[in-house]
Design a protein around this nucleic acid. Structure first.
Lengths: 225, 225
DNA sequence: CCAAAAGTGTTTTACGTACACCCATGC
DNA sequence: GCATGGGTGTACGTAAAACACTTTTGG
């Protein structure tokens, strides 16, 4: 078998919406190379793991979230990066993964990290390796997938209001959407939202209804930014 | 550095439209494993290559096409596959690539292949490794990208008629489109098609005009199947 | 002339946009 | 009552779908 050998790692673009802004989970590296730099969480693929196994394991280690048969949350592969000089230790291929999660408590670092934190995606500075590029592609993928899938609900907890969902779109797209047209659009899309009988009291104004995710995954016609 | 080591290969889903049908380039393997089976063309990533380098090199070896600064044709990464048992020789990660080319002459096999051929995608039987899955994802990616990009033109030679372009859509989507609405749609999308002054004579009926690709890459609003 | 294929115009219908309006709660 | 946010109704414009029609060639 020809060809030289690579170490294979997975790196995660873990996104959530906190306080109406899109945030990404970053870790502070506790090892060389890039000791002390911020980076995407990730890790090497173990001998009997498939790529998705590594990604879910590392995601669970960093956040406690279990996306195995996820009721909330979402995990998908992005792309692979293998420039010859991307890691000073030698040839490392990294497979990017995109994870969408509801707003969780502050993380407790796992793996080789000394610290980890949710950071607004538009305030992320320099990252280790080629992680800025992976992050950019992850954010772009999330933005476009909101248009034609029901993935925005992956950013919400199991029950949520239409306004919660609209805030997700507004945070990810950095736009504002007409609340009235948005309401009609999402409630009239078959299988997107399943109404519950619960109303949320305690806030100002008319109490909103809680919804759960429906079975639909695609959005025809798409939501427009 | 922890983690075990992988061989890294690239496999290509090379698509073209021949005789109004979508075809894929397959090779007949001349080595173990899967000796004699049909497979996607591909090869291992060499020591100083990035993934795209390997993909373009192997594509050129199999077809003669140069997608480096492609006037015609297109090349993009699909996804990576690394199930522990996907290759009996050991751990091999394969990065799938999608290539779209205009109709070319029959290929001359390169690499480890003993034969290669264009096969209609809906007549492809069993393939080596997990290549059926890679092919399916490549075809699906091509189908959806035709909706919201101008990539259909990558299946055409440098100059082509509106009908040539419509035949591409019809072959990839296996639908029929209204020629009149299609005409208006593509000619009115800014930057999709640049008219030339040449008319194609010799056929039956009114001679069609030749067009070149314009600078547009996205299609707003999208083409609908 | 007729057939065939390219290309234009017109009508209908669906849906996005904008915005007026009503509903149900806290204070 | 009044402010606030949830939710509904309605008019308008843009564009897709369907299809009649004109244009330009070959036989």
């Amino acid at each position: 078998m020809r060809g030289n050998l690579f170490a294979v790692a997975v790196n995660l673009v873990v996104l959530t919406v906190r306080r109406h802004r899109l945030h990404v989970l970053l870790i502070e590296r506790g090892e060389q190379p890039f000791l002390g730099s911020w980076a995407l969480p990730g890790g090497f693929v173990l001998p009997d793991e498939d790529l998705t196994d590594t990604a879910s394991r590392r995601l669970a280690e960093e956040t406690g979230a279990d996306t195995g048969q996820a009721v909330v949350g979402y995990l998908e592969q992005l792309a692979s990066y293998a420039a010859p000089d991307r890691d000073p230790r030698g040839r490392v291929l990294s497979v990017g993964y995109l994870a969408l999660l509801p707003d969780l408590p502050d993380p407790t670092p796992g793996g080789d990290a000394v610290a980890s934190a949710w950071r607004p995606v538009d305030e992320v500075g320099e990252l280790a390796f080629d992680h800025e590029r992976i992050l950019a592609e992850g954010v772009e993928r999330a933005r476009s997938k909101l248009e034609y899938t029901t993935l925005a609900a992956s950013f919400c907890s199991a029950e949520f209001t239409v306004t919660d969902l609209r805030r997700v779109y507004e945070a990810v797209w950095r736009t504002s959407l007409d609340p009235r047209n948005f309401q009609r659009k999402v409630t009239s899309t078959e299988g997107f939202l399943v109404p519950t009988s619960t109303l949320v009291t305690g806030g100002r104004g008319r109490p909103p209804r809680l919804f759960r995710r429906g079975p639909a995954t695609a959005l025809h016609p798409p939501m427009l930014r």
